[in-house]
């Protein structure tokens, strides 16, 4: 017993740390990662490795050589960015493309703003969108996967892409659906042919439930996205089922579940308050549906999240915690 330590209260601290929270997100992503590797084969594992490795290396290099601060890779946030980026591209993407995406995600979208906590846009989505506009061919060449257990690769369109093309060609939604043979039950566990992470809705939802149980995130953002997507498509589908797809189709296809569960709920780029989160989620859901129905891209989750990311500071200003004893 030497010198007495003196600090202001409180004298105890929660066991949670930035690292433990991020680790929980990584754990929550594991089912989706495992499923994607099983479906898409070793190539997908290579993509994940390159993506995570590039994110970590870049963050380390930037903190070490440019910011001259202690490295922040220990908080594991770069790992999440890497995993999400890899899950957000087709498994056929060349390794150097995803490396460039990682450089953009960490180098431009995250570290230029000052690193973790300072970025306005979700790094993984920013990286994905950067790749989407820079390398559209690689990013929209969807192939039916070979998988670990062998299946010939067939180039095909995603359900959303097929609908968009079909509508442009003048067919009705019902015809396209019938032609594509889309089965909602199958989509729930094996939605093949899109980005790697979109493959299995069940795996993603399992991760989401894990995050909720561990109280890492709150459900409001995700639920309001789902509700808005369902409601918006219900209205349009109700008006014209030949022109607009139905709610269930919209919930199950594309990157909606991945985006709503793991990317829109990113702490740094989402509003702090519950009501702010609802507004954020409604915005994402609505924009997603507008892009899907009326935009030139078949899928709009990434763009919707990026756009709403930009509104977060405003939302935070408008929605405050309810204060004790004040009107």
């Amino acid at each position: 017993m030497g010198k007495l330590l003196v600090t202001p209260s409180p004298h105890i601290h929660t066991k949670d740390s930035t690292r433990s929270l991020m680790l929980d997100v990584v754990i929550a992503l594991l089912p989706a990662v495992i499923v994607s590797v099983v479906f898409y084969g070793w190539r997908e594992l290579m993509l994940l490795g390159v993506s995570v490795g590039a994110c970590l290396l870049l963050e380390w290099a930037v903190t070490r050589f440019m910011l001259k601060k202690p490295s922040t890779i220990g908080d594991l946030s770069a790992v999440i960015t890497g995993i999400l980026l890899a899950l957000n591209v087709p498994y056929t993407t060349p390794w150097w493309v995803i490396a460039i995406g990682a450089v953009f995600a960490i180098g431009v979208a995250k570290m230029t703003f000052g690193g973790i906590g300072q970025n306005i846009f979700n790094p993984a989505i920013a990286g994905r969108v950067f790749l989407l506009v820079s390398f559209p061919t690689y990013m929209t060449t969807w192939s039916q996967p070979q998988g670990l257990f062998g299946l010939d690769a067939i180039t095909g369109a995603t359900p959303l892409g097929a609908v968009k093309e079909g509508l442009l060609a003048g067919s009705s939604v019902q015809d396209i659906m019938a032609a594509g043979g889309y089965d909602y039950a199958t989509m729930l566990y094996a939605n093949l042919g899109g980005s790697a992470g979109e493959a299995c809705a069940i795996a993603l939802l399992a991760g989401f439930v894990y995050l909720l149980c561990r109280r890492v995130i709150k459900p409001w953002i995700t639920l309001s996205i789902f509700a808005t997507v369902a409601l918006t498509s219900l209205i349009f589908w109700g008006i014209n089922p030949a022109r607009f797809t139905d709610p269930l189709f919209n919930l199950l296809t594309g990157g909606l579940i991945l985006g709503a569960c793991f990317m829109a709920t990113d702490y740094v780029t989402s509003p702090m308050s519950a009501w702010g989160g609802v507004v954020f989620g409604v915005g994402i859901g609505f924009l997603t549906m507008m892009i899907r129905y009326f935009g030139s891209y078949p899928e709009g989750v990434s763009f919707a999240i990026l756009i709403m990311n930009a509104f977060v500071p405003l939302i935070n200003m408008a929605f405050h915690q309810k204060k004790f004893g004040r009107k």
Binding site: K3, L4, L5, V6, T7, P8
Partner: peptide, 16 residues
């Protein structure tokens, strides 16, 4: 005889 472990600010320390 003591060691300070809080936010490194004289003002915080002086209040404590």
């Amino acid at each position: 005889i003591n060691e300070y472990g809080g936010y490194p600010s004289c003002k915080v320390k002086a209040a404590l």
